[in-house]
Amino acid sequence: MNKKKIVLAEDNTTLSLLLKFRLEKEGFDLFMAKDGKEALELIERNSPDLIITDIMMPFMSGLEVISHIRNKLNSETPIIVFSAAGQEEMVLKAFNLGANDFMGKPFSPNELMIRVKRLLKI
């Protein structure tokens, strides 16, 4: 069976590593990006089944990533957004742009797993 592919865009390397470890353990194929620009390259190259992105990232924000996926690539790939406290407006913008779900930081990796599986219908 083909592994489901996930692109994770997060500039905090420790958090990325933590999530990579967990998601790979659950059987997903993970592609990690440190910023929005890198994330878009990975998305275009690998056509993932799910995208997890932080909102605040260097070079290109999570909002720009979502907008590019929905408007330029015309892709319907589910997107989960991470947001820090006080970014409520950003979250609304993310939903307006086409994000499917969001998780406020700090979050529990266990909860993220549940949401990932729900969106991938596993």
């Binding site: 420790t14 933590l18 979050f107 990796p109 909860e111």
Partner: peptide, 15 residues
């Protein structure tokens, strides 16, 4: 610094 980075991002059992 590594612990700070993570403490701000995760909650629950991990924290």
């Amino acid at each position: 610094a590594v612990l700070y980075d993570l403490m701000n991002e995760v909650s629950g059992e991990m924290s």
